[in-house]
Structures are given as structure tokens and as C-alpha cells.
Amino acid sequence: MIILEDVHYSYDGVYTALRGISLQVDDGERLAVIGANGAGKTTMIKHMNGLLRPQNGRVILDGQDTKFMSVAEIARKVGLVFQNPDHQLFLDSVKEEVEFGLRNLGFTESEAEQRCQGTLASLGLGGFAERSPFTLSGGERKRVALASVLSTEPRFLALDEPTIGQDAHQKNRLAQMLAEMNKRGRTVVVVTHDIEFVIENFPRTVAMAEGQIIADGSTSMVLSNDEVIERCALAPPQMTLAARALRNVFPEVGQRLTLLSELEETIMGILGGA
């Protein structure tokens, strides 16, 4: 379990990036963190694996205050993938990059190799093991950074904008892998602007604005809150816009349509009767 208690943080002592964040993430949860650029999402997620330490307040990991834990100790439990893969990748081949973390965590040579192969295959990087990460495309480098953390399967996964640069197939692959890990008891926290990805994969959503949490609850509840839509700089999904436009003409269309399949059935209903 990760508990943030009234966490404050400022990078330069002038501008306060986090202004009293309190949040509890239970084991086995899937949680999305949304918010406008500059809301403090990345700063918060960096507190979860000890990269940043609170200037006020506490971060408690499995009952232990992280103030008294080393980064190495925390890293065994919490794996973080950065938004920009180039801040993370530094070795000459994809295989070395992924096996580096595994070896550091004490996996044997053959275990490391096996896990590396399995993770690369799951993320659609099967043929890339010997390639230099720097010859890969932006989307591919992002997946290598994800593989280097996902392969170690830490108890807590913290992912900063994991879907950037990913096409529809790759996004599905990633979602499937996260769902499998979650079934095995892993906790998954993502920071993302990708609202469709949130709706389809995360039951709980935390909305942030100006360094504070402004909403925390079920994803459908948080995303139907107008204040959240506005302060998190969210654009309403196309399906919501379609439903709104339909409702003007067909009053029978429900208030809370989010999924594509729901809209499809609604339209079949309308046209079936025509």
C-alpha cells in the first residue's frame, strides 16, 4: 500500500508544485491520474518511488516512511517509467537495456534473459533485441523504456504517459499486459492525458489541478464532473459529443453515454424504429 499524507513539494522554493496531496493506493488497484500540463502529476508520481522526497508531509510504503528508505529499497517495490524515454535509456542494445534492471534486482542470467524475451514479445518488440535504442522510432523507444520496468514486474507500477506515440495495436497490447499483471496482484498507477485509455482500463481516477487533488473516485463519476473537465483541460470525448448532439433531437438518448458500443446500440435503436 502507498499512502501520501499532506505532501508538499517545490522545485525552486518559489513555485509550489504540490500543495498538500493526500492519497491512498491499495494493493491491486488500477488508478489513473489526470490533470492539465503543470498540475503536478509527474511531481506526485515521482514521490511514489522516492525520486523526490516530500518537503512537508510523508510518503508511506507498506507501512514504512520512505524518509528512512534508500532509493534502491524503494525501487525493489515501485517501478517508475518516465514520460520521456530518452531520460531512461542509455545502453547499446535493447536487450542490455532491459536486462540491466533485471540483473540489478538480482535475477540470474537465464531468468533475466527469459523475462527480457517475454516482455519484448508482449510489447511488440520481438525482433528488436539486438538493435540500439537510438536507431528506434520515438514510439518504439517508449516501449523499450516500458519493457525495462515491466520485465521486473514490481509490486507497484508507476507509468508517466505510457501511451504517447503508440498506435492502436500497441496501446491494446500495453493495456492487456497491465491487466494481466494487475490480475497477478500488481498495483498500476498511470499519469495520462489519454482519456479513452483511462475509460477503457482504469476503474479509479484522481484528478489534479494546481498541485492539489480536486476529485478522486470511480472513473465514470470523476469524468462526469464538469469542474474536472474544465480544470483538467479535458476535451469531451467524441462519443460524448455525439451523444449530446443526438440528445437534442432524440430525447430518449441517455445522459451518460461513454462507450462506443453503447452509442452503437443507441443508434441501432433509433434507426431500427425509423
Binding site: D167, A168, H169, Q170, E196, M239, A242, L260, E264, M268
Partner: peptide
């Protein structure tokens, strides 16, 4: 087939078409 992110509205159009609409 190749994984392009087709707009949601276009996806609905395609699904309706397979159902005869």
C-alpha cells in the same frame, strides 16, 4: 488491420454498416 487509430465516430459508422445500416 495495421493499427491506425480510426476516429470513434468512423468506427461507429463501420460497425453499423456490418449490421446492415
Amino acid at each position: 488491420e495495421i493499427g491506425v487509430g480510426v476516429p470513434k465516430a468512423t468506427q461507429v459508422y463501420k460497425r453499423l454498416k456490418t449490421r446492415g445500416v
